[in-house]
Amino acid sequence: MRIEIKDLGFGYSDIPVLKNINLDLNNPQFISILGPNGVGKSTLIHCLNKILSPSSGTVLVDGKEVSEYTLKDMAKKIGYVPYTSGDSFPLSVIDTVLMGRHPHSNRRSNEADLEKVYEILRKLKMTHLALRSFDELSAGQHQKVMLARGLAQEPEILLLDEPTSNLDIRHQMDVTRMLRNLSHTQGIMVIMISHDINIAARYSDSIILMKDGTVFDVGTPEEVLTEGNIMEVYGVESRIITEDGHPHIILKDNIPDEETLWDPSESSCTMPNTGCLKG
């Protein structure tokens, strides 16, 4: 499968959120999208699956323009796992995940659908939660269920928006590893917006690093995660070491000399938890 993004631009009014994005993503692999908050990561993936339609440029999925896909066809090709669940009237876990079968099923969900759902729950080690109501789960379990729903779509491409932010680190690694294995064994292109640089570095095949609404760099983790890039994009000094063959970023705890006040317009202070101090 192949995603070609050419000169993609998007803005809600005159202020552009995305500009000049050019990407060529090929073959099953595990891709992480990294970048500070508000840089347009979610907006980018929303432009890929018809949630938003681009203001300019084109997106081709397997050679066909996204705008030409019907919603149902798109749903069969690209799965989506959102950042939060908006489910206002919660169903049981099984029924929630069953929703993911909708693009493939017709009138009623049948036995085969249920079996597929079970398989996914088993893989995510959630069978004991199958009949519980969605609103009785913890935030972490919510995220797993939404992930299961996305997987139930049996997509060729899976887009995920920070799917592990509410999980503890063990489960974060578990799920990320599972996603990586999924892309390698099931031949799915997994594109995940990640909030944790190190976990992304450890499992990703490629990393897309974004800054100010455009792609700053793209490539393997070793290529993209350099101290220079980190400083430019996040405004943080760091040291990269290699551990187990993967780059590892150690954040240096320092404040740049010029900044004594936190100025929100300064992009270098958009990285969370880096201690932009006042006074």
Binding site: K50, I51, L71, P82, S85, S88, L91, H102
Partner: peptide
């Protein structure tokens, strides 16, 4: 009924599950 379930899950989910 099924579409209504999906609609209740949110606009983004509905779109990505193929419901207009």
């Amino acid at each position: 009924g099924k579409q209504l379930n999906i609609l209740s899950a949110g606009d983004k989910i509905s779109t990505t599950l193929g419901v207009d």
